[in-house]
């Protein structure tokens, strides 16, 4: 009897399981909208804390190199010339061929100026494009020039020059007079107290 029961049991289970499976696929076909998106035109929602390409708030950055030191694969390269507190930027590059998107560069930043975005498109046909420069400007902006000249003028005890007077940028600024510097610090301390 076992074989007969198996035989009819097989038929019954084949029919019921097929019907069940077909109802599942029909439900998908009729009631469930596609969960995929037309990628280049639309994108899936990405979590805000996704670790994508970096972004730099350059005017906050103080060129402390802590992010570069934290990086386990040494993919960050920073070069800048200090004019007092004003920075003359040379480069701030991240080599995405090396970057492992570990986010170790974000927490050490003392001024919270480097962030990761949700952007993830890296594909390119040129290897050099994989190294991205995060700087929004290089060298000195007019206001940087103005700030440098203002501080120099202050040190020299002169009135601050107008912006128009600083149209032509001057190279250098490292030749600070030590005495003038100390005087300036002293003046500031006195002002504070």
């Amino acid at each position: 009897m076992g074989a007969v029961r198996d035989y009819f049991g097989n038929i019954a289970s084949a029919l019921t399981t097929t019907a069940k499976g077909m109802s599942v696929t029909l439900h998908h076909f009729r009631n469930e909208p596609p969960i995929t998106v037309q990628y280049p035109f639309e994108r899936m929602n990405i979590p805000d804390r996704y670790r994508g390409l970096h972004i730099l708030e350059q005017d906050k950055c103080i060129d402390c190199h802590l992010c570069a030191k934290a990086c386990p694969v040494d993919c960050i390269e920073i070069e800048a010339i200090h004019h007092g507190r004003t920075l003359e930027w040379k480069k701030f590059t991240i080599d995405y061929k090396k970057c492992i998107f570990c986010e170790f560069c974000i927490p050490p930043c003392p001024v919270d100026c480097i962030h990761m975005t949700t952007e993830y498109e890296l594909a390119t046909d040129n290897v050099d494009d994989m190294t991205e420069d995060l700087l929004s400007w290089t060298g000195l902006r007019p206001e940087d020039q103005f700030a440098i000249e203002a501080s120099e003028a202050k040190k020299a005890g002169k009135a601050a020059p107008t912006k128009a007077a600083t149209a032509a940028p001057e190279g250098g600024g490292d030749d600070d007079d030590k005495a003038a510097k100390i005087a300036a610090i002293k003046a500031r301390m006195a002002k504070k107290s």
Partner: peptide, 11 residues
């Protein structure tokens, strides 16, 4: 595609 909750050819 629709049984697998996809879209299939669209372009």
């Amino acid at each position: 595609a629709h049984m697998q909750v996809r879209m299939g050819p669209m372009e």
